[in-house]
């Protein structure tokens, strides 16, 4: 009983879309945080509801989305589908540049890339912070879904 449900509501500001991913936390990886409001959300006042994972795609599949290039590196998202349902989303193929480093009361800002997190067995359930990276996640996941014709 795992699925992704996307609700896109159109408002000029505020809560414009809802992405829901549910299932056991132990089986979910990166939480889908963002659709891309600039492209996915209409600017009018209507509300649309889209349910992804309706079973029109393959029953079981794994796909890695397109690698998104940024000035600092690369990002891709892996989508695992079982029984027509998305069961796992993970960030793929990132590398570490740095480890924790400390000075007295000041700290160098850690740069944690997914490889490190994976090596430590850490699964991220959600992201707090910037908007653009979550958009990249969504874009890449959508790319992976498209690759599976799973819309």
């Amino acid at each position: 009983m795992k699925r992704i449900l996307t609700l896109l509501g159109a408002t000029a500001a505020g809560f414009t879309s809802v992405v829901a991913l549910y299932g056991s936390p132990t089986k979910t990886g990166v939480l889908l945080k963002a659709a891309t409001p600039t492209t996915a959300v209409p600017t009018g006042g209507s509300t649309t509801t889209t349910t992804i994972a309706t079973g029109t795609g393959p029953a079981n599949a794994t796909a890695v989305g397109p690698v998104e290039n940024y000035s600092y590196g690369q990002l891709a998202v892996k989508v695992v589908i079982a029984g027509h349902r998305i069961v796992d989303l993970r960030v793929q193929g990132l590398q570490t540049l740095d480890a924790y480093s400390t000075q007295l009361e000041q700290y160098v800002v850690p740069i944690l890339k997914t490889e490190v997190l994976k090596a430590q067995g850490i699964r991220i359930n959600a992201i707090t912070g910037a908007t653009y990276t979550s958009e990249a996640y969504a874009y890449s996941i959508q790319g992976a879904l498209d690759k599976l014709r799973f819309k």
Partner: peptide, 9 residues
Amino acid sequence: GTVVSFLVD
């Protein structure tokens, strides 16, 4: 706008 995500068990 703001995107709201739910992760539910």
